[in-house]
Amino acid sequence: MSNNDFDIKYVANLARIKLTSDQEDRLGSQLGDILGYVKKLEELDVSNVEPMAHAVPLHNVMRADQVQPSITNEEALANAPKKANGLFVVPKIVE
């Protein structure tokens, strides 16, 4: 759990967030402090502890596979930054 190799550029890229160099410096050093703090968890022996994902005593909640009413194509596209012919428009992906 070392944070010496925390590379803000690399992780921001994974997170798909463009940072200015100022932000890289500031966020990088703040995140270094926070990672230093969470190292606390290394103090505990957790070798025989089960991980807990959530608090609800429910498993594999299923519903019947039935068609239900939903929003229209027009409503689904109402907030789209760009749309055409009932579709979302995105930059070219495949050459």
Binding site: M1, F6, V46, P51
Partner: peptide
Amino acid sequence: ILGTYVLSSGYYDAYYIRAQKVRSL
């Protein structure tokens, strides 16, 4: 960015799974 880091390859067990275990405690 912090969340992406603790889930990233090589750190997932050390941070995320460990935290889930402490959550059990």
